[in-house]
């Protein structure tokens, strides 16, 4: 059984129509796959390579360049929470916020809570420095946040259903 469904293949095929090469559909396709599986499984890399006329090593070369994609040993939790650590956020307490959230969740940046609800990450400037210190939940920014507000936000997410946020 192929891991990429017929619907997914159709969507990826539609992406390829936007570009002069099939390879250019790689990033949109990888986003689609990760949204579906919470990671990019090896089997999907092979099938995607085949579908786009590439060698699996080419797909891997691209996806591994971007810190964004996860392999199947490190799947994402239901929500991905990025805490900004760049200078404008640091100046207003970003590093402290990251540390507090690590403590609160009992995990290090890059790890996922054992209930599978939250993956915590550090981020470089999220482009929302007027909201410093800020965090990105999936792809929506929140700020300025103190530790209490951030913890409450995250606890609300944890209680949400199984819907994947990304």
């Amino acid at each position: 059984m192929p891991i990429l469904t017929e619907t997914m293949r159709q969507e990826i095929e539609a992406y390829t129509q936007r570009y002069a090469t099939r390879q250019a559909a790689l990033l949109p396709a990888l986003h689609l796959i990760q949204r579906h599986f919470h990671c990019v499984p090896l089997a999907a890399i092979e099938e995607l390579a085949d579908f786009l006329g590439l060698h699996p090593a080419q797909v891997h070369d691209t996806l591994s360049f971007y810190g964004f994609f996860r392999d199947e040993k490190h799947p994402l939790g239901r929500h991905r929470v990025w805490v900004c650590r760049s200078l404008p956020c640091m100046l207003r307490g970003g590093e402290q916020l990251l540390e507090d959230l690590c403590h609160h969740l009992g995990i290090q940046p890059g790890q996922t809570t054992s209930d599978g609800s939250i993956t915590l990450e550090f981020a470089e400037c999220l482009g929302a420095c007027e909201l410093a210190p800020c965090i990105l939940i999936n792809d929506e920014c929140h700020g300025p946040l103190d530790s209490d507000t951030a913890r409450n936000l995250i606890e609300k997410l944890r209680q949400q259903g199984a819907e994947h946020g990304i």
């Binding site: 404008p88 470089e124 400037c125 482009g127 420095c129 007027e130």
Partner: peptide, 11 residues
Amino acid sequence: DESEPGTFCNR
């Protein structure tokens, strides 16, 4: 791509 730390005007 706006990623230069401090920059958010494109957004």
